[in-house]
Design a protein around this nucleic acid. Structure first.
Lengths: 212, 212
DNA sequence: TAGATTGTTAATCGATTAACAATC
DNA sequence: TAGATTGTTAATCGATTAACAATC
């Protein structure tokens, strides 16, 4: 299906729309105009309408948008109507934090395995899941469905482990290691580089604060 | 000092340059051309030169860039030549992960306090730092220097706690809570919305994979 | 119907890329 | 000097905003 190409700028904004729509729904608000959403989200109403129209008409002239419908549609676009099996590579603090965070399961991201090489950690349970030896990774991936691999391991080993997993058929990576993964095309990578985030913060401390 | 305004697009790329330059240096490479860096980083040489030139001439015609010099200069621009005192609000898994991550201290971000309301956690030590009762927060901020507050607490309380801290003079927030903070202008916020990151990943799984 | 608000086109703005003169 | 590569201007591309006709 050759749909019109959605720009990355739009895609990056969708999750935030989804969050705001979810909050509106929780607050019992069932309809909203682009103008009112604009006010709450601090983006232009024009942009909101342009963004939504990339996917066809979700609104109704003279009325606005139905919050529940819009939320569901954006959820579908984001692929939140599906279940994803996630394995976590690295049972350190960050890996544990991800495993324990309940919010993901709610959105259909189910952690089905946690792997490490540290014998101290192997066998322990995190969020009800036993930590497995990374030597059993190949076996696991070949027998279980794995949609996403979250990489919370040292940057020295991340590219290698990711490469192996890609070879075994894993098509999506949530990368927390401070390195770029160079994987075959067709494999998607979402990077979370905390060190870079912190540097942007310090940039703004140094360069923004004195002025405005 | 009214320097030319640097666009956010450029600022977002600086930490990645910094990372690549650090790696080059580790590998003993002391000089690099925009073309070679382009090849490694998968961005255009033109963009690299434009980016660096926002801050004045770092290179030399016919030679390229001196890696160590360039890295130091970008480090200064990013404010990495300073020390920042960080407090962590919320001693959950994510807060612990941040406190334990050694990489930050290396870059001048020193965790000086961790706060929680859970009596189970208060008094415990994380990464050598005792977890304090959040009721003592005001006192702490008034007597110690606090440059950055990392918010790893539930979204329901994050805006309120951030508001208090801003009132007490904290000017920078590293926000991991799944909510937007509406703070007075002059206060800088860097958001790390893991749920949104994961949604972008699932979007790409659903919408990118079948195509290319 | 009249009022409101979308969907969509056109105008503007900003960011990226290309090209080349300056210069090491 | 000749070759290489930056710094910088000009051209292109894409994203955002403004405006308004369509329509509920």
């Amino acid at each position: 299906m050759a749909e019109k190409k959605i720009s990355m700028a739009v895609v990056k904004r969708l999750p935030r729309y989804y969050r705001y729509l979810s909050e509106l729904l929780e607050n019992g608000i069932d309809r909203i105009s682009s103008q009112e959403l604009s006010r709450r989200m601090q983006v232009t109403a024009s942009q909101i309408r342009q963004d939504f129209n990339n996917f066809g008409g979700f609104g109704q002239q003279g009325y606005g948008y139905n919050v529940e419908f819009l939320r569901t549609e954006i959820g579908k676009i984001l692929g939140l109507d599906q279940t994803y099996h996630v394995i976590i590579l690295g049972a350190g603090n960050l890996g544990q934090a991800l495993a324990n965070y309940g919010g993901f399961a709610k959105r259909g991201f189910v952690v089905s395995g946690i792997f490490d090489v540290d014998t101290e950690k192997i066998g322990k349970e995190i969020a009800g899941i036993r930590v497995l030896d990374r030597s059993g990774l190949k076996d696991f991936v070949e027998t279980q469905k794995v949609d996403i691999a979250a990489l919370t391991l040292p940057k020295a080993v991340a590219p290698e482990v990711a490469g192996e997993l890609a070879q075994l058929g894993v098509r999506a990576f949530w990368n927390f290691a401070a390195t770029d993964l160079n994987l075959p095309s067709g494999v998607v990578v979402e990077n979370v580089h905390l060190a870079e985030s912190l540097m942007r913060l310090s940039y703004n401390i140094v360069n923004r604060l004195p002025c405005e």
